[in-house]
Design a protein around this nucleic acid. Structure first.
Length: 372
RNA sequence: GCGAAAUUGGUGAAGUGGUUAACACGCCAGAUUGUGGCUCUGGUAUGCAUGGGUUCGAUCCCCAUAUUUCGUC
């Protein structure tokens, strides 16, 4: 089902926006964080646990679900919501553009599409903007993403110029191929760190009139100041009445900084990946739960956290589980880390309501980086 | 009692008369941003059972002692 975005308020001290997304008769506030459920599951968590973290939208992946189990199976199941039993919010599907960039070792990118190999069996695959949209429509997500070219950083201006043209043409083709009345479609702004290319890309996409806009080509190895510039270059040219989604960004400080640059939605694998590797996000910085100092620490991971893990288990126990490679440890930390990021955006929303984002940012940095 | 073999870090072990004692696990740290979950990167024996000897030089050869294992009366 399509989503609708309403801008409610702007922060007086920054570019931060408070808004809401309407879906299926329910309202989800922005800025928001979307947990990632690549293969139709937020790794190690049940849908109930995801909902308990107060997640709204979750993300699933076109590329992975195309290869396994195949979009037809998901379609036969009645769509992604039914297939994975997630009904607490919209589902967004990534287009596969980033996976081509990050997973395919050898790929042949042409203006027509991308030719690469199936990572599971070596079969030759060909993904095009039309194919990506077609898959996403069958998956039955609520938000589909345009198929884009995610370019490595740094890249030459020459390459980026041509790539932006290609991403725009792909966006056009995807939009033409998109027929679903039930699914929103977002365009993706590329252009690297080149201000005029970001501007050109953003303006051209807005001209095409998408349901929402996202910013891609970040979190590909660039430094933070560069990422923030990329975001500024793009958001400057996006319409106020449409939602903005910064793809793949989820370092806590990056969420704070980019909210202030006008971003409404974030997604990131980091809370769940960090969890599987034994790390916990807290107000006072990241904790490596594998560290031996936690072996007899019988306090919760975070005193101020209201998640299931923090309400019921100790650092010592989680340390033990992680050291023993018990999946329950990864699960508890996944719950905690997702809840941490969602709680962070809850606090951000409160700060925007009270026009104190600048102050919030200063305090956040102080707590996260300067304590302990 | 006699005979034989063995003894290398927290563990399993490789190895050589001559520069920094392999590797694995463990342990101690670090990394991780539109996710191939069980990954990656570092660090980790001042030392080769103990004491003596041979040698320019010994973890490696010899002797003694200790411990362990096996065999035998």
């Amino acid at each position: 089902m399509k989503i609708k975005y309403n801008l409610k308020k702007k922060d007086a001290s920054s570019g931060a926006r408070l808004g809401e997304i309407e879906w299926n008769g329910r309202v989800y506030e922005t800025p928001m964080f979307m947990p990632v459920g690549t293969q139709a599951t937020v790794k190690t968590l049940s849908p109930e646990e995801v909902a308990d973290c107060k997640a709204g939208i979750i993300l699933a992946n076109t590329y992975h679900l195309w290869l396994r189990p195949g979009e037809d199976i998901v379609s036969q199941a009645g769509g992604l919501h039914k297939f994975m039993n997630y009904h607490d919010g919209p589902i967004l599907t990534d287009s596969g553009g980033f996976q081509v960039f990050s997973l395919a070792k050898k790929k042949d990118i042409t203006d027509d599409g991308v030719r690469f190999k199936n990572q599971y069996n070596g079969d030759e695959l060909f993904l095009t903007p039309e194919k990506s949209i077609q898959i996403q429509e069958k998956l039955g997500s609520d938000i589909a993403m345009s198929f884009d070219e995610c370019v490595a950083w740094p890249s030459t201006r020459d390459y980026m110029e041509h790539s932006v043209e290609r991403t725009l043409e792909w966006a056009r083709r995807g939009k033409r191929a998109h027929t679903s009345e039930e699914q929103s479609l977002f365009g993706i702004v590329q252009g690297g760190e080149y201000e005029d290319l970001r501007e050109k890309c953003a303006k051209a996409l807005v001209e095409m009139d998408f349901d929402g806009y996202s910013i891609g080509g970040t979190s590909v190895g660039e430094d933070k100041p560069t990422m923030y510039k990329m975001v500024e270059y793009a958001t400057k040219h996006l319409p106020e009445d449409k939602v903005r989604y910064l793809m793949g960004v989820g370092d806590p400080i990056d969420i704070v900084e980019n909210v202030m640059r006008g971003i409404d939605i974030f997604d990131c694998v980091s809370p769940t990946r960090l969890a599987r590797h034994g790390n916990a996000l807290t107000k006072y910085g990241k904790l490596n739960m594998k560290n031996s100092k936690f072996k007899d620490d019988f306090t919760p991971v975070s005193e101020e956290c209201d998640c299931y893990a923090c309400k019921n288990y100790t650092r010592a126990y989680i340390h033990h589980l992680i050291k023993c490679d018990e999946v329950f440890g990864a699960r508890l930390l996944s719950v905690h880390n997702i809840r941490y990021l969602i709680h962070l955006v809850e606090e951000i929303r409160e700060a925007i309501k009270e026009d104190r984002m600048q102050e919030f940012r200063s305090q956040f940095i102080k707590d996260y980086y300067e304590s302990k």
